[in-house]
């Protein structure tokens, strides 16, 4: 089954993607015949039970895993054609990732954490831009603090600022509120969607929260490694 919205203005386009992990008897077919097109600037919510392959699908889109078969086109670039270092550079400039566990670098300050992708991309004004991003998430006064000195919500705000700093084409958020309380989580989601709307980034949001997923332009459901058809498409198929 596959999602069949048009390919013409795709931010992310997966076609016939299959991926298995593990070796020998432990090898598992995680992603099965994935076809998915996400328009530029579109926000999609990716939902599904544990073990359905959501994280793996995210990693394929981010270029962190290579598909066994099929093509993956992100921001106009066919990822399968890029070498390892080219993929890393592409990621740094075009893909921002917000993790559930924040994954800030503990020995760098909030400002330095945000500047990392800019420095890796060779930006001359990395620190100035990082300051702007930090201000955008309301943490200018915490710029010299280390992650251990920040609350969970503040860490996630820094992580969001880091993901947005390179003005990426794609923003991936993997359960961004999973380690936060409800109130703090709401703040983060507000900032996440604000960032997406202001910059026109394509947003892929993995969540267990159906209400949150419903805020996206579209919800994609994954089950056992396959994309479930959208309800209206399923109904049309039944009628046909």
């Amino acid at each position: 089954m596959h999602d069949t919205l048009g390919l013409a203005h795709a931010g992310i386009a997966l076609s016939g993607v299959n991926l298995s992990l593990g070796r020998g008897a432990a090898r598992v077919h995680i992603l099965k015949d994935i076809d998915l097109n996400i328009g530029r600037g579109e926000a999609i919510g990716l939902v599904g039970p544990s073990g359905s392959g959501k994280s793996t699908l995210l990693m394929v889109m981010a270029g962190l895993e290579r598909a066994d078969t099929g093509t993956v086109v992100v921001a106009g670039e066919t990822l399968g054609l890029l070498g390892e270092d080219a993929l890393a550079r592409f990621r740094g400039r075009n893909v921002g990732i917000v993790f559930q566990s924040f994954h800030l670098i503990p020995t760098m300050t909030a400002l330095e954490n945000i500047a990392v992708p800019l420095e890796l991309a060779g930006s001359e004004d990395a620190h100035e831009r990082a300051l702007e991003e930090l201000a955008a998430v309301g943490l200018s006064e915490r710029r010299h603090h280390y992650p251990a000195e920040l609350s969970g919500g503040e860490q996630q705000r820094v992580a969001l600022a880091r993901a947005l700093a390179p003005n990426p084409a794609i923003l991936i958020a993997d359960e961004p509120t999973g380690n936060l309380d409800e109130a703090t989580g709401s703040e983060i989601i507000k900032l996440l969607f604000a960032g997406h709307e202001q910059r026109g980034t394509t947003l892929v949001l993995v969540t267990h929260d159906h209400a949150l997923a419903a805020r996206c332009d579209r919800v994609v459901r994954l089950r056992s490694g396959r994309i479930e058809p959208a309800p209206q498409a399923a109904a049309a198929a039944v009628r046909a």
């Binding site: 270092d85 890393a88 990621r91 994954h103 670098i105 503990p106 990392v116």
Partner: peptide, 16 residues
């Protein structure tokens, strides 16, 4: 390990 993986997710290649 986590820091290295984070750097890679932010655009650092293996050589870097």
């Amino acid at each position: 390990r986590d820091v290295i993986a984070t750097l890679k997710s932010l655009g650092a290649g293996g050589r870097r």
